[in-house]
Amino acid sequence: MAEIDRSLVRALPLFANMTDEDLDRLLARASMRRVQISETVFEQGQKATHFFLLLHGRLKVTQVTPEGQQIIVRVVHPGDLFGFAQALQRDDYPGTPIAAAESVVMSWPNDVWGHFVEQNPHLAVNAMRTIGQRLQEAHTRIREMATEEVERRVAHAVLRLIDQAGRREQDGVRIDFPLTRQDVAEMTGTTLHTVSRIFSAWESQGIVKGGRQKLLVRDRPRLEALAEGQG
């Protein structure tokens, strides 16, 4: 297995306080793989043997409900931990990460975690902060789905994505990975037809452009107003 250069991960907040020696020991147990668009990293329900870090690209994590509906529960961004079933007190993976763009992931066997946390308590603190942010976002989405009209939910979802994965351009902010209307429907608990109708209306009003793939948000203040029910 090729040695992983610490410079690839040194800038990530998760490893910010680790010494070079500790980081090299952690990387010595890591594996790296490239994940092509639409390829899965692992499958929902598969026995959890490793935890993962996204180094490059974007992943969308899907779950299939007991009723057979597929939903997108989160988007994984560079520097995020994922597949950390131990933190959820379970021995299988709760979702399926699928590459939304060509991605590079690192993985470690689950038995690595305990040792490195003992040696580097700040690593556990950083990981818990990540998990806490993820839970907070999940709670926000649940509240939105329970209390808000569909257009507000879609506006909130797009705003979160441009904050997490936005790239500023001359005409606005573009989400830097392919995002289909079906993806947005699965993120917001609605139908493709409804999302298509909303995006078509937004495009005609100049709020967004190119809603089928790499979405460009041209009028963030208007989108924020819609998210707050002021449209």
Rank of each mutant, 00 (worst) to 15 (best):
K47C: 01
H77F: 14
V73I: 14
E39A: 15
E67G: 12
G83L: 07
Q86P: 00
A28P: 00
T62S: 14
F15L: 04
V75P: 00
E39W: 04
K47T: 10
F82G: 02
G79R: 06
F52K: 02
I98S: 05
E67V: 01
K47Q: 13
R90G: 01
V61I: 15
T40F: 05
V41E: 06
R33G: 01
R29G: 13
D20V: 01
Q36Y: 09
V75Q: 02
F15P: 03
T96F: 10
N17A: 09
R34L: 05
S31R: 11
D91I: 00
S38I: 05
K47R: 14
F51V: 11
L27I: 00
A99N: 10
G68N: 11
M32R: 14
P94H: 06
R74V: 08
Q63P: 00
V64R: 14
V41L: 08
L88C: 05
T65D: 11
E43I: 03
T40C: 12
I37P: 09
L23H: 03
F84L: 11
R90V: 13
L23R: 06
Y93G: 03
Q44R: 08
L54V: 13
K60W: 10
V75E: 01
I72V: 15
L54C: 03
T65N: 07
A28K: 10
F51P: 02
H77Y: 14
V75G: 02
A16R: 14
D22C: 00
M18H: 01
T49M: 11
G79I: 04
V64W: 02
A87L: 13
K47M: 08
H50S: 08
G68V: 10
V76W: 09
K60S: 09
E39T: 09
L81G: 03
I37V: 15
T96Q: 10
G68S: 11
I98Y: 07
L26F: 14
A48K: 08
L59N: 02
F52N: 08
R90F: 03
